[in-house]
């Protein structure tokens, strides 16, 4: 089974910088924005986006939104331990929430995130930023900000590693004819 790198550290940094500019452009400034990352790696990416935006003089509250308890596949996978949810003190009511995740695939995680948001308030609008969009959507969901579109086969594995957690920044793709049984 072969593994090849798709994005290196500099590519990831560039993609996040571009997304940060796009967020400001679409929102016509920083007012009312809140970034919520989906644990684990989405939360780290949200922190990085927040830091980049702060460098552009846009101080935007950053938090984390765990979606484990809202998933529709809890009885198909080993038990997951939920991660902390941190909603910025100002809340999300009437704000524009930008959800941040590492990989957009079936769209089910984002569906769960939209439900989870409802328990915390009523945003004015919800946007979605992802580092990688690999296609194969199973729900009518799309991303507003995409770092890299990565058409992939369902048998392939996309793996995002981030320095904070895994020691290095990289996006790799592992070809997998061998794991046909998993689907």
């Amino acid at each position: 089974m072969q593994t090849r790198a798709v994005l290196q550290q500099a590519d990831i940094q560039r993609a996040l910088t571009r997304i940060a500019h796009e967020i400001l452009e679409t929102n016509r400034g920083a007012s009312g924005l809140v970034l919520l990352g989906i644990p684990t790696r989405g939360a780290l990416l949200a922190e990085r986006l927040g830091a980049i935006l702060a460098g552009l003089d846009a101080e935007i509250p950053v938090g984390a939104l765990d979606v484990t308890m809202y998933r529709d596949d809890l009885d198909r996978h080993p038990t997951r331990t939920p991660q902390p949810t941190r909603i910025p003190a100002a809340g999300i009511d009437d704000r524009t929430v930008v959800l941040v995740d590492d990989v957009l695939y079936s769209g089910r995680t984002i569906r769960a995130a939209l439900d989870a948001l409802g328990a915390h308030g009523r945003p004015r609008a919800v946007r979605l930023a992802v580092l990688v969009d690999r296609g194969h959507r199973e729900l009518p969901i799309r991303a507003d900000f995409v770092g890299k579109n990565l058409p992939s086969s369902a048998a392939e594995r996309i793996n995002v590693t981030l320095a904070e957690l895994d020691g290095e920044d990289a996006v790799t793709i592992t070809g997998g004819e061998a794991d046909g049984g998993a689907a």
Binding site: T68, M69, Y70, Q83, P84, T85, G118, A119, H120
Partner: peptide
Amino acid sequence: AEDMADVATRRVPKLPT
């Protein structure tokens, strides 16, 4: 349980799980 304890403080203190 840490996260379950947080649920009680939310606007909707209930999970659909």
